[in-house]
Write a protein that binds this DNA or RNA. Structure first.
Length: 423
RNA sequence: GGAGGAAUGGCCGAGUGGUUGAAGGCGCACGCUUGGAAAGCGUGUUUACUUAAUUGUAACGAGGGUUCGAAUCCCUCUUCCUCCUCCA
């Protein structure tokens, strides 16, 4: 959520910047409501002041045994007036908040200008994209041949987009998750196992609601939402709290299953593991000092990159342009891993700095020089497993149809070096 | 799921309708005292919005109600505790 005071001070700036984020602010309406609201506020506070002093006098008079009937009567009228204005104000307040909640964050100046993913800027590339000199299989065919994925039965029980990992595939998936977590723990993150179902407030806090309700799985009976990322419960861990400045940056990591309806993206890269309704991801979350968040953002992104480097998967880092930036993000790097069989770069991580956008929604503060201040929240995948799995399948398969296990994962596979087709 | 109890400031804990934003204690900060420290004494110590202004308004789990006036009375909800029931 943006700061209404800043919008008030510099409406043109916010008009232009939110437009670049692909969703223009309804600035006139917003400021009109704001002005009316503040007008009523001063009015009603004046009336309340009157009420407070009169009530005090009534109390004193009654104590002295005097009759205060007349004052009581006029106060009763004043009370009605106050209630009336209070109601108007509450309505305006709700209206204003709803508008503010629909407005995206503005981009950091270091973010490239641009409208679509075409305009994203490749910041760096690591490794050289591998090419096979044999006729390599795509991950779906390979995986089914090796018996490590079972897409058909997943679809049978839940529909498409719900993969089943089997046998050594399940173990490999688990190895990825565990290795990711272990790497983060080594770097000093605290591990969290969060709830997968969260209430509406949490979803509003991180920005999924109210705007993107359609993309979420919702349990109507309990009004709970399945998390699309561990970012939601982990960031909201500290909602309505003040984190001591000395504890910043606070760094948490969490594995969770993630659930996304992917409404409106049917038909796009839906093969195999490329786009799913349920997938596994390890997420890193930072609660940062407002003056340090951009440093932290670089550090965070590096943690994710190192994982790909250790897996021996070439990747590139993109700086998202203003138009492609997520709703709440001020700056974001995407990491894309190269999948040789697909001959595509696949997004496996998104590392974002939200500045105080989420902190304001969730009310997460820190105390700086005795003053409570919204802190900055950051998060990044480290990493989402499905496309890493695709890249591994693509890159680590051999001409005889086996799949080599990346070196770093072998300790988690009982020393297993490769998965071979059963005879 | 059933029965009961509880929720107050950084912490503990008073407070059952009026001058209580909230006693008292602890903690913390500053000062006095001291060779130094402890003890002791003194002062201060919530947040948000608002104002020229410590000007004013609001907040005692959350929301609603009664009242001239609510931390205090009523209703709903949430969370925690105890006892049953059930269960991985």
């Amino acid at each position: 959520m943006l700061d209404i005071r800043k919008i008030r001070e510099n409406p043109e700036f916010y008009q232009i910047e939110t437009q670049k984020k692909g969703s223009a602010i309804q600035i006139e309406e917003l400021l009109k409501i704001d002005e009316k609201r503040r007008d009523l506020l001063t009015q009603v506070e004046q009336l309340k002041r009157e009420r407070n002093s009169s009530s005090k006098m009534i109390g004193e008079a009654k104590k002295r045994g005097e009759d205060a009937e007349e004052a009581v009567l006029s106060m009763r009228k004043l009370g009605d007036e106050i209630a009336e204005i209070d109601n108007q104000m509450k309505a305006l307040d709700a209206e204003q908040t709803e508008l503010l909640m629909m407005i995206p964050n503005v981009a950091h100046p270091s973010t490239p200008e641009g409208k679509t993913s075409e305009d994203n800027v490749t910041v760096s590339t690591w490794g050289s994209p591998k090419k096979h000199d044999f006729n390599a299989l795509d991950h779906k065919s390979l995986g089914e041949k090796l018996g490590i994925f079972d897409f058909e039965r997943g679809a049978k029980i839940s529909g498409s987009g719900f993969p089943v990992y089997r046998g050594l595939g399940a173990k490999l998936e688990r190895a990825l998750i565990q290795w990711f977590l272990d790497m983060h723990l080594e770097a000093g993150f605290e591990e969290v196992i969060p709830p997968y179902l969260v209430h509406r407030d949490s979803m509003r806090g991180t920005g999924q609601l109210p705007k993107f309700e359609e993309d979420m799985y919702h349990c109507a009976k309990d009004d709970l939402f399945l998390i699309p990322t561990a970012e939601v419960p982990v960031t909201n861990l500290y909602s309505n709290e003040v984190i001591p400045e000395s504890e910043l940056p606070m760094r948490l990591c969490a594995y969770s299953a993630c659930f996304r309806r992917e409404a409106g993206s049917y038909g796009k890269d839906t093969r195999g593991l490329l786009r799913l309704h349920q997938f596994n991801k390890v997420e890193m979350v930072y609660f940062s000092h407002p003056t340090k968040s951009y440093e932290d953002h670089e550090t965070l992104t590096r943690f994710a990159e190192v994982l790909l480097e250790k897996l021996g998967l070439s990747y590139r880092r993109l700086a998202l342009c203003k138009g492609d930036l997520g709703f709440g993000a001020a700056k974001c790097y995407d990491l894309e891993v190269y999948a040789p069989v697909e001959d595509k770069w696949l997004e496996v991580s998104s590392c974002s700095n939200f500045e105080d956008f989420q902190a304001r929604r969730s009310n997460i503060k820190t105390k700086i020089n005795g003053k409570n201040t919204f802190l900055h929240t950051l998060n990044g995948s480290g990493l989402a497993t499905p496309r890493v799995m695709v890249a591994i399948c693509d890159q680590y398969q051999t001409a005889d149809g086996s799949l080599m296990i990346p070196e770093v994962l072998r300790p988690y596979m009982g020393g297993l070096q490769q998965i071979s087709p059963s005879k």
